[in-house]
Nucleic acid binder design. Sequence first.
DNA 1: CGGTATCTTGTAAACGTTTTCAAAACAACA
DNA 2: TGTTGTTTTGAAAACGTTTACAAGATACCG
Lengths: 343, 343
Amino acid sequence: MVTIKDVAKAANVSIATVSRVVNDYAHVRPAVREAVNKAIAELGYRPNGLASSFRTQQSNIVGVLLRQQRTPFSSALAYAIETTMFDEGYRVLLCSTNGDPDREEAYLDTMMEMRAQGIIIRPSGATARTIRRANALRESGVAVTFVDMKPRLASISAVVCDNYSGGYEGMRHLIELGHRKIGVVAGAVAQRGGGTDVGSDRVRGIRQAAQDLATDVEIVFSPAFTETSSFEVGLECGRTMITTEKDMTAIFATTDMLAIGVMHAAHGLGLDLPRDVSILGYDGVLESSVTFPTLSTIAQPIEEMGRIAATTLIEHMRGTVRTPRQVVLENALIRRDSTRMLP
Amino acid sequence: MVTIKDVAKAANVSIATVSRVVNDYAHVRPAVREAVNKAIAELGYRPNGLASSFRTQQSNIVGVLLRQQRTPFSSALAYAIETTMFDEGYRVLLCSTNGDPDREEAYLDTMMEMRAQGIIIRPSGATARTIRRANALRESGVAVTFVDMKPRLASISAVVCDNYSGGYEGMRHLIELGHRKIGVVAGAVAQRGGGTDVGSDRVRGIRQAAQDLATDVEIVFSPAFTETSSFEVGLECGRTMITTEKDMTAIFATTDMLAIGVMHAAHGLGLDLPRDVSILGYDGVLESSVTFPTLSTIAQPIEEMGRIAATTLIEHMRGTVRTPRQVVLENALIRRDSTRMLP
DNA sequence: CGGTATCTTGTAAACGTTTTCAAAACAACA
DNA sequence: TGTTGTTTTGAAAACGTTTACAAGATACCG
């Protein structure tokens, strides 16, 4: 490998000068600069990033800790973060913990060892622990931003959608369409409503809307389950719900993938959508636009979340913003074909 | 930050000894080892990865260069690669070029600067250039493996599916079901059939099967288009194809997302699936199992591809395998509800 | 107990940069 | 030409590890 020394020798200058040229410093005579650049080109010199990172203790690496990687939501989020970071000169180390706390631990360790400048975390359920860990990171000088989760105490920056009002507006949509008995498919934690996770907020919004918007609204929850977002769960819950609750005219699933599962359940039971039952999703992932019928959904601005999380983290890393900041974005109802006005 | 020096002082040993303990070397007295570990724990010492990477010139970083990141295929692939690498002690830098050659260039530069040990590339269309670049990388000591693309000359390792036979078997499926006039939705490059890309191989297989398997098979191609995999393109092509070719009974799309687009076109034109037209996809992404009706498809073992690409690269990096290796995996037909026997 | 082999430890030199400091070169001015 | 101020350059010291080498300690053997 050709080093800065080789370049210095070839250009007849000191390594300090080469360094100055490489890093675009002022105070280098044009002639010298040119000679150095020529030597660099001729020798095919590439600065050793390992060395300069080491010297400056700046890795330019940020970690992104996701709980999954295969879901549409995560993909979109990761993509937005990654491109934003790249354009700002940071490189991202993408890690999917798959919900395994040991893996999360291991990844955080690695990031510390690599002296990552900042970390974006989409926390999994184990919030207390994650927050503790995140605070420890912050104290040792690593910038931290949460995405898609708002911690109760605002010591850490976070970017999140207003899931409460999303749930609320989803219900408003269904109620305005004339639905009065509405099934809700949501995770177990969410149903209890105590958590700080996004699902709980959605359910709270749903409950409140049912109280506020009409006197005769009845909501029924599908039996609790633990995993909170998969197609299979939606299928299962949809099936039992549809067979049990005869006069239910609409189902609100707190996730698009859940909703798609519910749609399949409905199809499987011979129902015609949306005539026999309206279905409303939540997230606005790509997949929701390619179902049949296309899925009405409360869309989150996923890419915007990613971008804002990235820029927030960057500001923390650069020190331009020191106080934690919590950004709450609005969701938007997308009316498509899976929900219809009751006759 | 607490360094190895601090630990050495606290444990009353030399930094060399600490280093030996940290790196699990033999020849350290148990008592000493213990004392050092105690000091490490007390001080909260974390080895400076930047420093050791620099010293050893081993970054433990591998780059993964994808052209997109938001597609189900890419996500699954990235996930498989990432977990495999992590378990082997490597960290992955995930990069999506979005088809932009400048971005690809920039990423490769970064990887060189970070002294990545190896790179997995899912090449985009610009193959000649990518191969040249890949060879240059190899010569400067970086391990390179292609995934989902097999270069003509076997100087670079690659993991790919047998797209030719996949196309062939897809056609066999449709022909066995009694279909004789079959529409094919594929990219422009693929249709010309000259490229080394996966699409071309699929089309070649399709063509050959049409010749081999029955005398009266007719295939019609949808008008050529450039982007090769999106839902919108499938929608567009499906629409024109269905309205133009009246006696066509099946459509083979060379991508699941294309197929899903075609399904929507069919639904939009009031067709009943699979009664009025059978639809066959290719890839076997998650989405194909949640369409309505569920999509029959030629499934690629995407995760296996990722895993094998990762292990291949690891073997190259470790030097256990030096000669390039090209692995070809088989696809498998998944029969679902979107294809049916002609009456 | 001396000699030898083995185990354990420390010293110090790298690794390729960046950066401080001071010296050298140059320009401006009297 | 000498003085002063500015620009340009180089020497050398870091940064925190790993590791070659040598030396000190210990064990073993006759």
